[in-house]
Amino acid sequence: MSLELRKVRKVYGSIEVLPSFSLEIADGEFLTLLGPSGSGKTTVLRLIGGFAAADGGTILFEGADITRLPANKRPFNTVFQDYALFPHMTVAQNAGYGPLVQRRDPVKSKKLVDETLEIVGLTEFRDRYPAQLSGGQRQRVALARAMVCEPRVILLDEPLAALDAGLRRQMQLFLKQTQRRIRTTFVFVTHDQDEAITMSDRIVVMDQGRLEQLGTPKELYYQPRTRFVAGFFGDNNLIGGTLSVAARVETPLGSLPVAAADGLSPGTSVLLAVRPEALRLGNGEAAIAADVEEIVFGGASTRLLLRASAAPHLRLDVRLASDFRAQMPEVGQRVTVTYDPADAVVVPA
């Protein structure tokens, strides 16, 4: 285990941002800290980077305690949210800053800078100043500058937040490819779940300073363990109810089947979570009667917004693969939707 946080605590004034946070980060993985603002994800990054001092607990790197090690002595480099490029230095000077202040051999440093600029595709921009670059190019300079000293871990603090949607997707791919190429551990902070899903090996979902769930993007998407994760990750139909025996949930829509409910005893209040794409029209073991309220054609998929007949305050979101020839229900029509119990999960309410 490369980097480890053990029961780390951080307090700002009277606010306990992180009560007790533990995490193990493997060597070479792309790990994302995901959560809404105020969840403590940036604080975790700052603690790893050495920009904030922990008020308790330990941070270990390859077994050595680095909790008190100053930022400039840690083998980690950061890509800052606003890039923090030095405006008075060219691209090459920005990239070469690390080797320069670390008094590395100038000849080797130059080679390193050249290679890094090559990787991020900025060789021809080496003599430009940050003000002469586009947002995406600045982002690459920031990455190059952090990469050049060959750190063991690169910390990225919402580096794509300032980019527009198209460029952001392009940079997501670029970051992921670069990470695979240089095989360095990336710790990435974002509040954007799409970004987290597409880029990460593993994701840490955080809320209010706590680790909600840790897992691969697929695990988090298909097997959320808490209400927060179920609601935060993509769209989900959450139906409240009580767990009964034999893996069923008693809901206002009737008794609905689920695959399994590990660790939850019968009688518990739960939320049943079914993805919009797991719902389909038709009858089955699970059957919910509903009225079509709206139909939204979205290209590859068509979205149906339904109102449950048994409980009109409950809306269901159904996403069907668009099929030009298929018969779609009409607004106002009563339909029955079903799902495969294996696609339904329960989380504590």
Binding site: F51, A71, N72, K73, L85, G98, V101, Q102
Partner: peptide
């Protein structure tokens, strides 16, 4: 912070 992060005193 960036300067410190890159190893500068």
């Amino acid at each position: 912070q960036a300067s410190t992060d890159l190893g500068a005193g």
